[in-house]
């Protein structure tokens, strides 16, 4: 069926009318800050406390826009008789953002997590020379670096956390084992003491209840009577103690 003549005209009117009722897409930028996506590449921030002046960033930079100066300082020996150490001290760290092409290779390559992407983007200058920003400015931008975005649900754990968790798990297992051993040793000792006391108090066996509380604490007394299998201290059985005595 051919279209009704004039239906195209009506369709055009409908489109504009519908658009009018929708939300506009205008970004009122200087009045309203834009909502930037996570990992926006605004500017490169320097966390200079982490920087070891390894120069990897400056060497990997495709357009050579990172300037680093440093000198060596000698650190006196930590312990008497030790050796003096030398340490790199950062004198200058500057990025020329008129050259930077925001590839992020420096951030990728930094082994010490000293460089970060910041979403800050309002650093236009009227002179191109002013676009070379020194370390204090780069350090200030560090405050604008957002927290890393949360992982997707069911995502694989980050390597760092996985490693840390593995270490922690190992450590906890170790501690538990130690605690167990210590407890076993203690219980054995207690049982021995109890047995010795029972031996000593045999003449007045008429009141064993009175004798038990002070010597054998409930934990030591219960295993004997109720669950001998659960109680590891098989060595601390009264008869064994008696036999010993």
């Amino acid at each position: 069926m051919p279209p009704i003549p004039g239906s195209g005209l009506a369709k055009g009117l409908a489109v504009t009318l519908r658009t009018m009722t929708k939300k506009t897409v205008t970004a009122q930028y200087p009045d309203v800050q834009p909502e930037l996506p996570p990992r926006s590449r605004g500017v490169i921030a320097l966390f200079e406390e982490n920087c070891t002046v390894c120069m990897l960033c400056a060497r990997e930079c495709p357009d050579w826009c990172i300037y680093i100066d440093s000198h060596k300082e000698t650190v006196p020996a930590a312990a008497p008789g030790g050796r003096e150490r030398s340490r790199n001290v950062l004198d200058r760290f500057a990025i020329d953002f008129s050259l930077c092409m925001y590839c992020g290779i420096c951030i990728e390559v930094c082994p010490f997590d000293a460089l970060f992407w910041s979403p800050e983007f309002e650093y236009a200058e009227t002179d191109i020379l002013d676009l070379t920003h020194e370390r204090d400015k780069l350090r200030d931008w560090m405050w604008t670096v957002p927290e890393p975005p949360a992982l997707d649900p069911h995502a694989e754990e980050p390597k760092e956390i996985a490693a840390a968790r593995k270490t922690a798990d190992k450590l906890r297992a170790q501690q538990e084992q130690q605690a167990q051993e210590a407890q076993q040793a203690q219980e054995a000792q207690q049982a021995q003491e109890a047995a010795a006391e029972a031996d000593a108090a045999k003449p007045d066996a008429a009141k064993p209840d009175a004798a038990k509380p002070d010597a054998a604490k409930p934990d030591a007394a219960k295993p004997d009577a109720a669950k001998p299998d659960a109680a590891k201290p098989d060595a601390a059985k009264p008869d064994a103690g008696e036999g010993d005595a």
């Binding site: 009318l17 658009t19 929708k22 897409v25």
Partner: peptide, 13 residues
């Protein structure tokens, strides 16, 4: 204003 909103804009503000 109408023209702006029909084009998804805000017009003079």
């Amino acid at each position: 204003k109408v023209m702006a909103h029909m084009q998804g804009r805000l017009g003079p503000m």
